[in-house]
């Protein structure tokens, strides 16, 4: 009886599985296929080759990869530090005011990321809102604040703020207040409560938030292009160059595949460590 039910489940899921396979998996498989084609071909009908991966190591592509991962890591840590107190307030203290904050943060997502980043460009460029005002008030000549590495990390932190905040709120709200009170009654210090109760119990939210921001930031390009003036070249930029100006689809595919494997591997590893059902509220 149970086996029939299982089969029914599979059958009902089949249309969605086929749809997902066609629109989600198929393009990834094409990319994976091209990654093993010789450089500069436009069809998959060639003998497989590892040439693109040799190029990856020979021509220093590990540098943009490490930069992308490094900046994504830095932005993730910064976001955690910035979002945690706010998320704690939203989950435990602010009450109905949390809704106002939620709406305010979500509203920023209604405007395209590029336009919001242009807003930052106008704010930070030479003679822009911030340096321009400072110049007018102090009389000192101010340079623009754009076109360097820290500004790219700032851009990433800004762009992916909601993706860290909301999972954190969800995670922190899962920490029972009684437990914290009990620990306090038994003489635990604030730090100890934070380290041994808050952090471990909010971990699913922390992992999901960190994962979302890290994965998005590792593939981000707009921040480095618009704010950073490409002070450093990121991996997504190299992938775009290979596909367009380089007219080298196999190299672009290989670079994309390497990024997907690293980020995907991290995601699977992280997700295997937490109880996703818990954060989704399906714990029975």
């Amino acid at each position: 009886m149970e086996r029939i039910e299982e089969r029914q489940g599979l059958l009902s899921a089949l249309p969605v599985l086929i749809l997902l396979g066609a629109i989600f998996l198929a393009p990834l498989l094409v990319v994976a296929g091209f990654a093993f084609m010789p450089p500069k071909v436009f069809h998959l009908a060639h003998l497989p080759s590892f040439e693109n991966f040799r190029i990856f190591f020979d021509q220093g592509y590990h540098a943009p990869l490490l930069r992308s991962l490094g900046m994504a890591g830095a932005a993730t840590v910064l976001l955690f530090v910035l979002c945690y107190p706010l998320a704690y307030g939203m989950a435990k203290i602010f009450g109905r005011f949390s809704l106002a904050i939620t709406l305010a943060v979500v509203a920023t997502l209604f405007v395209s990321e590029n336009i919001r980043l242009f807003g930052w460009v106008l704010t930070l460029m030479k003679g822009g809102m911030l340096p321009g005002h400072l110049e007018a008030w102090t009389g000192l000549e101010m340079d623009g604040l754009l076109y360097n590495l820290p500004i790219i990390v700032l851009g990433l932190t800004y762009a992916y703020f909601p993706f860290m905040l909301f999972p954190l709120v969800q995670g922190i709200s899962m920490v029972p207040d009684d437990l914290r009170l009990a620990a306090s009654d038994l003489g635990a210090s604030r730090l100890r409560i934070f380290l041994e109760i808050d952090l471990p119990l909010a971990m699913p939210g922390i992992v999901v938030g960190s994962l979302l921001t890290f994965v998005l930031a590792a593939g981000a390009m707009a921040e480095s292009k618009l704010l950073g003036g490409q002070a450093v070249i990121v991996m997504a930029d190299e992938i775009e160059t290979a596909f367009t100006y380089g007219q080298n689809w196999p190299l672009g595919s290989a670079l994309a595949l390497i990024l997907i494997l690293i980020v995907g591997g991290l995601a699977i590893l992280a997700l295997s460590k937490i109880d996703l059902d818990g954060i989704m509220g399906r714990r029975s």
């Binding site: 460009v121 030479k126 076109y147 292009k225 618009l226 003036g229 002070a231």
Partner: peptide, 19 residues
């Protein structure tokens, strides 16, 4: 180079504002 961009408006802006 002080900056790299593929956006000609951003580049002209930097040129006009003296960056």
């Amino acid at each position: 180079a002080k900056l790299l961009t593929d956006d000609l408006v951003a580049m002209n802006t930097a040129l006009i504002n003296g960056e």
